[in-house]
Design a protein around this nucleic acid. Sequence first.
DNA 1: CACTTTATGCTCAAGTTGAGCACAAGCTGG
DNA 2: CCAGCTTGTGCTCAACTTGAGCATAAAGTG
Lengths: 317, 317
Amino acid sequence: MSTPIAVGLSAVIVAADGKAPYALATRHADGAAGLPHGRFDPKGHRTFELGLRDWVRAQTGFEPGYVEQLYTFGDLGRELPQADLGDAPSGARLISVGYLGLTPERTDISAFDAVWRDWYRHFPWEDHRAGRPTLIDQALAPGLRIWSDNNGKQAAAQLARVQLAFGLDGQPWIEERTLERYELLYEAGLAPEATRDSGRKPPALPVSALGEPMISDHRRILATAIGRLRGKLKYRPVVFELMRDSFTLLELQKVVESILGLSLHKQNFRRSLDRSGLVVGLGQTTQATGGRPAELFRFRREALRNGHLSGVQTPRG
Amino acid sequence: MSTPIAVGLSAVIVAADGKAPYALATRHADGAAGLPHGRFDPKGHRTFELGLRDWVRAQTGFEPGYVEQLYTFGDLGRELPQADLGDAPSGARLISVGYLGLTPERTDISAFDAVWRDWYRHFPWEDHRAGRPTLIDQALAPGLRIWSDNNGKQAAAQLARVQLAFGLDGQPWIEERTLERYELLYEAGLAPEATRDSGRKPPALPVSALGEPMISDHRRILATAIGRLRGKLKYRPVVFELMRDSFTLLELQKVVESILGLSLHKQNFRRSLDRSGLVVGLGQTTQATGGRPAELFRFRREALRNGHLSGVQTPRG
DNA sequence: CACTTTATGCTCAAGTTGAGCACAAGCTGG
DNA sequence: CCAGCTTGTGCTCAACTTGAGCATAAAGTG
């Protein structure tokens, strides 16, 4: 009799405001965070997506809107017992399908054991809005260099991977490479999850540098989501899934910046938005912004019909 | 006792020359083509990718190099009995994980029941190198319009989807939308697979317009691969996985064109390649090209180290 | 040697990008 | 009530990039 297969569905539900991007997370026994997730039911679920929506609703009360599939992880040893998959037969091989969802609003989830969590708590090295975090060069880079040095023949190749991923030694920082960075840290034993999965010795660095771990492979899925969303922002107008009906241009910019973990040049951001035709001014203004009142805008859904799939330009500065 | 789950692994292995892009295909009983595929073995396969490589090797003798995951399909009713998954328990729920592989060479596979197939035989509407195929407007569009008209309240939305996907009524043709186009044809009952899956009446159009079907959901996976590869070409230097060590710039351009299904402006293609620093001239020339001898180039792998992830620009022409 | 074929260099106009100056229009504290 | 802060918005400029096309180079062929 062959090993049964169980499919876990996990969701990264993202919301963002001017301050930070948030992922919907569940709280677990040991205080660890996890993503809303559950087991795919081959009888009850006609599609993965429907199953996923069921689970998210059940665990957080949140009703997902825009949703897309991220990746399917199937490698042995990263799926973990902590992941509570209910009636999964023990000894089953666990496969994990990750989804990304976007929402304009951090809905009230106080009735559930769930929270909206600033995703940079799990990835402190990913937030470059106030400049490159010093922890990269001070804490992570030394550890990664030691690890790559100890890689024998592969040392040079591993060092190159590290340099490219983390923007060391003159390489540029490329924000979409979130997953590559997390995987490197994991391989180097600098993620607490690696210890847990394999009984390696725990990393010598504090959580403030390594980010808070999550149950099972959920931090890996979150990293995948961040990288995918960062990339997609640039060529599809998905930011608007994260905005309410009307917003000021600065609000929009802050959301983009919080997702990308970068700060952008204001005037150029506006110019490219203007050209794209993705937004229209409403003629109204809001003075909720502190200084001069800002005009309110809304997303022009019609623009989608116009072959416009450009997304938001992201000049740095 | 719950329904067991079986995971199918399928591979789209792509090669290309100046004339066409090819996918490695297997031949089946009824003459239908399929992709190399097999069942994921939860005991024997440590990762999906390793399992996939095993299956491809076993069925075609081909040894995959570059490989990436495409998508995981799990919806009921599209996975099909024709897919020979060996010892899969009957009544199992079938999940399908697709992979994309690239290779510079159409290796000899004559010892196996496999062929390298011009992928446009399965997607005749996707090849715009010699201009927009007339079959789109003459054969497909009318059928799609009839279908969307019959969609009641959703008619307008469906029509918009069709227009966007197929570039009707002034919309531009967007080559990456291969999957969307195939899915629309399927939904509209214009793919022979739809008939097979649901017992609907067969489409009234000939295979020369609708493309040759494939077993199970393999044409859907192939469409996913084409779309993904077309997109990726533009922002990652993946074309070079399809080239041998040295090549002329026209050869490179022809490969890009065959993948995209578009023709490009020669001088501009060269200029952007030049600027990218992705290739270096070898100083040698080849006179195998017919006219003036062309210089041979090779891919500068070092360019990858240089933050260069640009891929090949694709100005039209 | 005219003619075809492929390879390459170069130019030009139009558009895009990155950076920054300047000013507008609210609020707050003295 | 105005100096000074905050946020919003218009505009300019130089450096590049893109799309298009002209012109010439270097092979082979009848």
